[in-house]
Amino acid sequence: MTRTVTVTGASGFVGSHLCPALARAGFAVRAMTRRPDRYGGVGEAVHGDVHDPQSLETALAGADSAYYLVHSLASSDFERKDARAARNFGRAAAAAGLDQIVYLGGLGDDSDRLSPHLRSRREVERLLAGGGVPVTTVRAAVIVGAGGISWEITRQLVDHLPMMITPAWTKTRTQPIALDDVVRYLVGLLGRPEARGRTFEIGGPDVLRYVDMLRRAAAVQGKRIPMMNVPLLTPRLSSAWLAFVTDVDQRTARNLIDSMTNEMVVRDPSIEDVVPGRPIGYDEAVRRALGLTGS
């Protein structure tokens, strides 16, 4: 019997790649969107808004499971909005009788002083599970793929700058992951009894500082960016600078930079026991994001 899965954020960065992968894997896909008449992707478009509990009843009715891929990072009160949305969705999922929610969150050590963005991601994990449906949480750092905000910042800095200033946050270690691998893990965890109620950390094979990511992304394109160390550049000034040289708005840039002060490295590789496979290296992920190689 074909399993039916509702994908929130179906037209977004990850969702737009996840929906076709789920269809190829044999799942019946419901693409949840606030504007189904404008949806042109894979799956049956259904109206749904995480801030409107009544709309979730229709979007989740008859589904076996769901992916939760939404956030309000560009909003000034994203923590409150994301908490309310997660609470709504967790309750609606339970009322619809779903057996699994798969949530894409963020890496970061809980013993560290997490940024507001990462703290919000942790709260969403808890609130989604509040309705009683088992949640499978997948935590990732920078996702390297065309259209992803963190990757677009990297790409545009490489494209636009003759020289890169390097504040203290660019020395933080992270474990970037190719979009193809994120989708592979998300699909592989769906419907797996051993994945329900568990948290998995995912990352590529390379642990890099943000400044190293910039250098290597430039090298893939045959470029070299001189670096100038500016350790005292504050997150506020850094976000204003990013908003000036990229098309990312300042509020989103600030929330991302705050998170970049937290090391985001995989500590628990147990995902490989459930969804085995060799992840793509950073340089190849960059080539795929730039369309320089087939995926």
Rank of each mutant, 00 (worst) to 15 (best):
T2N: 13
S55R: 02
R196T: 02
G145R: 06
D249H: 10
A178E: 03
G48D: 03
S16V: 02
T4A: 15
V50L: 06
S295R: 13
R91M: 11
D181C: 06
A168K: 15
Y67P: 03
D82R: 10
G62V: 01
G188K: 05
R251S: 11
R278L: 12
R139T: 07
S65Y: 03
F89K: 00
R216H: 10
G12L: 02
R3P: 03
P167R: 04
V138F: 14
A92Y: 05
T261G: 14
R198W: 13
E123R: 11
Q250I: 09
S11R: 13
G130C: 07
G40H: 06
G43I: 06
R91W: 08
L186K: 02
T261C: 10
R155Q: 13
I177K: 05
D77A: 11
P162V: 08
S295V: 11
D109I: 09
P36N: 03
L232W: 15
E57F: 05
A31T: 02
A219P: 12
P231A: 02
Y103M: 03
E125H: 15
R192T: 08
F27V: 09
G105S: 15
E57K: 14
L242C: 11
I225L: 15
F13C: 09
D180Q: 14
D37L: 11
S76K: 11
S11N: 15
M32V: 09
A141D: 05
E201K: 06
P279C: 08
Q221V: 07
V183F: 09
S259E: 07
V230D: 08
L190S: 06
R278H: 13
V29R: 01
E194D: 14
E125T: 14
G188P: 00
T33D: 03
A94C: 06
S55L: 04
V248N: 07
Q221E: 15
Q250E: 15
Q100D: 01
G197E: 13
D181Q: 10
S239M: 01
P235W: 08
V5A: 12
G106V: 07
V70L: 11
G132A: 08
